[in-house]
Design a protein around this nucleic acid. Sequence first.
DNA 1: TCCTTCGCGATGCGACCGTATTGCGAAAGG
DNA 2: CCTTTCGCAATACGGTCGCATCGCGAAGGA
Lengths: 188, 188
Amino acid sequence: MTRVPKQVDHAERRAHIAEAVLAVVARGGLEEVSVRHVATAAGVSPGMVQHYFRSKDEMMRAALERVGAAVQERLGAAGELPPRDLVRALFLQLLPLDRQRTREARVAVAFLAHAAVHPEAGDELRANARALRAHLGARLLGSTAQADAVATGLLALVDGLGLQVLTGQLAADDAVATLDAWLDLALD
Amino acid sequence: MTRVPKQVDHAERRAHIAEAVLAVVARGGLEEVSVRHVATAAGVSPGMVQHYFRSKDEMMRAALERVGAAVQERLGAAGELPPRDLVRALFLQLLPLDRQRTREARVAVAFLAHAAVHPEAGDELRANARALRAHLGARLLGSTAQADAVATGLLALVDGLGLQVLTGQLAADDAVATLDAWLDLALD
DNA sequence: TCCTTCGCGATGCGACCGTATTGCGAAAGG
DNA sequence: CCTTTCGCAATACGGTCGCATCGCGAAGGA
């Protein structure tokens, strides 16, 4: 058995394909995800997708994990600001205010809708949510019961605002204005 | 040409099938909606579904209109309470706190996720949202700018709380508690 | 140079999709 | 009773799906 060094970066290919999955989801939702579509979006052959992911399910799981990783990374990149501004900046990161974040928000809502109906697929999502909540809790007050209610409410508010912006129910400006008004309300 | 009076209630059949669509969506999301599945869920033949809806798209539109009608009806059934309690009652109607409302919320999020990615399909949804906002505005203060921000924020909050409950990120009790805390905050 | 191993493209299969088409039984006016 | 019309079941078709399988070409030790 002669060990031949890998001549392709397995992880990188998987990442590339997973990214293509997210692109397809952002453009057309989960229903448009098929091995063949993803392959086209990634600029590779369907066979290659199949080579790197043994099943569509495994492929979707990898794509979802990439979303989680991206969110984590985004959270880490927070400067040193007064708490109020920091919290505001963090929430603005979560709203679909530009192309990039619209893309991410679309992906997120697609997976959330799926999780609403297939609870077993929501573990990754719930883990991300927990991380977010923990992160926010640390940024706000100590863990008083009051602070927890505030954190929960603000997260839900941002989720709702994002959803309404995504579906065209609310203008992006209004969402930001509403967020600011409620931050005033909540943070004294 | 002899006119034969209808021996079946066309509208009723359509409603029955549309209801079956919603049942399928609530159980498995939009992806599981097919003419054959809907027919099975409705206890009729696939051919009959096709007879009453010329295309799947028309069927989906009818189902979505049914959701809108149900929401409208629900809003109408509000008693005479102090404004604060009335607003609270209204919002509790929108959270997935029991089987029935979980079903409706699942349907709603499925359609919302679709609309996030297919904007042209979101008209009905946006109309419903507008009706809701108007209804809430009338129940709250007069249309001061302040009241509008409060209404927008509360609606977004409820959307977000509902989404988190649906996806198992948040317990139903906590959602209600958070809603109450924020109602206190917002309504003086 | 041969030979093994890996990467991956190509092909095929069975299932399911939306929809067009056809035909038949029942109901009702003439 | 006959005939027309309506309600609907059945069937067929072309397309896409996920996935299993096969085979070839290139890349390196031996």
